[in-house]
Each structure stands twice: as C-alpha cells, then as structure tokens.
Amino acid sequence: MARKMETIHDLIEEGKTRALVWLICILSLAYFLSLTSKWVWLNIPISFLIISVLRYLSLEVEIHRRGPTICQPSYLSYLQSRQLSPHDPLLFLARDKMKWKRNIDSPVVEVAVDEFTHKIVQEFVTDLWYSSITPDQEVPEQIRLLINDVIGEISQRVRHINLIDLLTRDMVDLIGSHLELYRRNQARIGVHVMGTLSSEERDERLKHCLAAAKELHPALISPEDEYKVLKRLMGGVVAVVLRPQEAQCPIVRCLAQELLACVVMQPIMNFASPGLASDEFCHSACMLLG
C-alpha cells in the first residue's frame, strides 16, 4: 500500500512539474508575441496552440526516428517454426532400391548379387560387430543397398564398353606401350646387367631408372603416394555412387573414401603384388599339405 501511495505521489509531482514547464513556456511565448501585438490575452491561447503543435511535431519526429516496433519472436515460436513434419524426407533414409537392378537388367545376376552382398554384410557387419550394439537392421540394409549401387554402377559402365575396341586396340596399345617402356629402360640399365640381377634388384633398378626419367607412376614412389593416389581415385568413386545430399556431407564423404581406399583397395593391390601372391600361395599349399 505504501508503495502504491509513493507511485501516486510521484505521478502528482510529475504532473505539477510538466504543468509548470508548460505554463512558463506559454507565458514566455506570449510575452514575446506581445512585443508585436497589443492583444495580450489573445497571445496566451495562440502561444498554447503553437507550443502544442511543436510538441506534436517533435513526437512525430521521434517516432519516425525510432522506426517501427519489431516484435521479437519468442524461443518457443522459433522452435515451432523449425519443427519438422512427421513426413519430412529428412526423417527417412530413402534410397532407390531398384536403381541397381535397372543398371544390371538381368534377373539371374540380380539375385546372385543380392545374395552375395547380403552374406557379406551379414558376416562382416551384422554378426561381427553391429548386432552387439543394437538390434537395428536399417543400417546393414543401407550398407547392402550401397554395395548393390556400386555393383550396379560398375555393371552399367561395363555394358557400355566396346569390347572389340578394348581388346583389339586399347589393350594392345597399353601392353605395347608398357613393353616399349620396359625395353627402353632395360637398354639404359644394360641387358647383361639385368640378367645378373635378382627379381627384387631388377625391380629396384627399373624403379630408379623410371624415376630418373620421370616416367614412374606416382603410386609407385612410396606407400604414402600409393595411399594418396588410391584416396583420390576413391574420391571419384564416392562422388559417383553417393547421392548428392550424402556426397555434400564431409564426414560421410571422407569416411567412405577412407574405407574404400584403406580397407578395400589397398588389400587388393597388395594381393596383386607378385611377391605377396607367391607367399600366400606357398602358405596355402603348406596348410593343405600339412
């Protein structure tokens, strides 16, 4: 109650102050007007009107200077505007399940590929580690569809290859260029010297000779360079296989690129090495004989 009385008292005091200021302004203006007019009592209402108009204009200028009042939305309204609908595409991992089949266009091959990828995902993903984390089956299914898309893309590209030109022109030119490169570097090293070297020493001499002539493939310079080449090549594969929204995600793109380069392609390239292949063959033979 005391607080309310203080507020009323402050309002009364403010009213008195404003009334006194208005009275002083009106009388002052009326006095200046009386210097040019003999009607003193008429100058008082004229002064009141002039001061009222000036006060109104000053308020208008102040309002325009402040600009329109913008109502700031609440955080709850912001959340409601950002809320996704139950049928929003972002909530679903929609992938075209028939795309890879259209690329292959062979029912027998489609069934074989589907069974093959299902067994791979079941053994190396679901049973190996994913089932121990969650009973979910959506991620293995998406991985299987992604592998199918890769196989379908490869199948489509293979179907567009002209086998006649590939076997009679491209392969012949490729083999001929490699043989010519080998003969040229063999002549630089020396035919008799090459005959006295072991296979490892011969490969090393050829590597140095090709590097000196700047004809060595970048992937053969060092293991790090091989990794960089594979990573760059797999980046192109990922860009073709992944959907646009997936390829634009840096984490998904980098993870897929690294997995393809390090987990898939590097073991294949190592297995294609003659030394490793012979070691694997000897190991398998010993296991069979033992």
Rank of each mutant, 00 (worst) to 15 (best):
D88T: 00
N103I: 01
D114L: 06
T117D: 01
D127P: 03
V40N: 14
I63P: 00
R144G: 06
V111R: 13
E62F: 01
L146C: 07
Y130G: 03
A30P: 03
V40Q: 14
P68N: 10
F32V: 12
L20M: 13
L59T: 08
R144A: 10
F124C: 11
V61W: 11
D114P: 01
D149L: 04
Y75W: 07
W22Y: 12
Q122C: 06
Q137D: 07
E115T: 10
L33F: 11
W22H: 14
Y31M: 10
P107I: 04
A30R: 06
L35Y: 07
F92A: 01
I63S: 10
W100V: 02
A30V: 01
D96S: 06
H118N: 13
L76V: 08
F116C: 10
M98G: 03
E115G: 11
S77A: 05
D96R: 09
R55P: 03
S85K: 13
W41E: 14
Q142S: 07
I24F: 07
L93N: 12
D136T: 01
L49H: 09
S52P: 03
W22S: 12
R102C: 05
T17H: 14
I120C: 05
Y75L: 04
Q80S: 04
I26V: 14
T17K: 15
Q122E: 13
A94S: 12
R18Q: 11
E110P: 00
Y75Q: 05
Q142T: 02
S106P: 08
S52H: 13
I143F: 08
Y31S: 07
E153I: 09
E110A: 03
Q80W: 04
I120V: 13
G15I: 06
V121A: 00
V121C: 00
E62P: 00
Y78P: 02
L146I: 02
N148R: 15
S106K: 11
S37H: 14
T134F: 03
T17C: 13
I143R: 10
Q83R: 13
R144Q: 12
I46M: 15
V139N: 01
L91D: 00
R82K: 12
F124P: 09
S132E: 11
N103D: 09
D127Q: 11
I24P: 04
E153Y: 11
R18H: 08
E141A: 02
Q142N: 07
Q142K: 11
V150N: 06
V21L: 14
S74Q: 07
N148T: 02
I151N: 09
L35R: 14
I154Y: 08
D96K: 07
K99S: 02
Q80P: 02
P89K: 01
T69D: 05
N43K: 15
K101R: 14
W41A: 14
V40M: 15
I51P: 08
R82L: 03
I46Q: 14
L54H: 09
C25V: 08
D88Y: 01
F124L: 14
S131D: 05
V139T: 03
N103K: 12
G67M: 01
E115F: 06
S77F: 00
L93D: 09
R95I: 02
S81W: 06
L90P: 00
Q80V: 00
Y31A: 08
L29R: 10
K119E: 11
S34T: 02
E141T: 04
S34A: 06
P89R: 02
